[in-house]
Design a protein around this nucleic acid. Structure first.
Lengths: 204, 204
DNA sequence: ATCGAAAACTGATCGACGATCAATTTTCGA
DNA sequence: TCGAAAATTGATCGTCGATCAGTTTTCGAT
């Protein structure tokens, strides 16, 4: 790797670091090119030689958050080997809530951010990775279900938990207690799994 | 009502109309003071004699959307008198999906919008009104549950459906078909209701 | 090692934004 | 009818994302 390539890679990483740090601390709304430049020691214009625009840079910062989150969920997955699937899914949901609370600004940025151009595939894949852990657990629990159905249930489960965490922690609608949020999540998870078994006559 | 009061009320309404129209057509991101002024025939500065800032104006436009949505849900509620509660809740979820698709930009603005100052109570109430129809239906279905529990389940149900619609229709994560989204919603609703009955030994 | 080309970097600058303000016009009540 | 109060205007301020001419650094061929 040439001097220039190494320098570019270092600079590129420093810019994402700075963006992710500001985003985590002050939120997506407070993120701007000039502060990122100051934080990583370069001029505003320089950032545009490494990233097409601010939106693209945000995608990279968001992907970092997604990978952190995926690691957390996968760790919970591995830790629960051999235990009952519903309990393990509830633990993953709890971990999701904990992550959202501990990394509120960065987590919110994942869903706040909107861009006009289509989202590139590499970033989509980082998102889909979250469904992976859930789908693997579901496969253990629902023997007779085809692959596509399992994917759909996994995404539905994730979406429901996300909705509960999202609206449960929103100041917009009176913040619920962690206890109440967890209760909602567990109700949905157990309900969905039981309903699946009931409709398919498998598992349980 | 004096000439001045009437004029102010008319102007105020025209501003909200313009903001809501632009928001519905071009999205929250495209909304700006100058275009609102042009659309309702006044100078940018005039808007600030009627609203504290753009955020406050957006709240009023969002409340208009919330009331439209609440009317739709309440209409579904009344239409289903006498039918089974789970089916009526599924119909409400379907109506929520239909509204989100038919009023995509305005619906997204409800959750995209963030402001630093606390959200005023009158706007919160417009949001809580959405839970009302659900809670009323749940009361019919879960005889033994206390008021607070019913409220929590209603909010959990709404949050889950919202999460499914939100992530199911997000271009960010490959748009699902309407069929798949409805299937996810129905699974969650039936699952939650059955789970409630199972845990409480009532209803059903 | 040297030098022309290419890439990276800088900071001033552009147009658009939310918000403000002095100046002007309109409305009110006495 | 007239002075005060309110409403309106459009220029203006500071900030934003993005661009660009000018400069510095790095590369590869000789």
């Amino acid at each position: 790797m040439s001097i220039r390539e190494a320098s570019n890679a270092r600079r590129r990483m420093a810019i994402i670091d700075a963006a992710h740090a500001i985003m985590s601390q002050k939120g997506l709304q407070a993120l701007n090119i000039r502060d990122i430049g100051k934080a990583c020691g370069c001029a505003p214009g320089t950032i545009y030689t490494h990233f097409e625009d601010l939106d693209t840079l945000i995608l990279h910062a968001n992907s970092r958050t997604l990978n952190q989150l995926a690691q957390v969920l996968e760790a919970v997955d591995e830790k629960g080997q051999g235990r009952a699937v519903p309990d393990r899914l509830c633990e993953m949901a709890d971990a999701y809530l904990d992550f959202a609370l501990a990394n509120r600004a960065a987590w919110q940025a994942l869903f706040e951010h909107q861009m006009e151009r289509p989202i590139p595939q590499w970033h989509r894949d980082d998102h889909f990775r979250l469904f992976g852990s859930i789908a693997r657990l579901l496969l253990l629990h629902t023997a007779g279900l085809d692959e596509a159905r399992v994917q759909l249930v996994a995404r539905g489960l994730y979406s429901s938990v996300h909705g509960i965490v999202s609206l449960g922690t929103a100041p917009r609608l009176l913040r619920l207690s962690d206890r109440d949020i967890r209760w909602q999540m567990h109700l949905v998870i157990h309900g969905m799994l039981n309903q699946l078994s009931r409709e398919n006559g498998t598992g349980q």
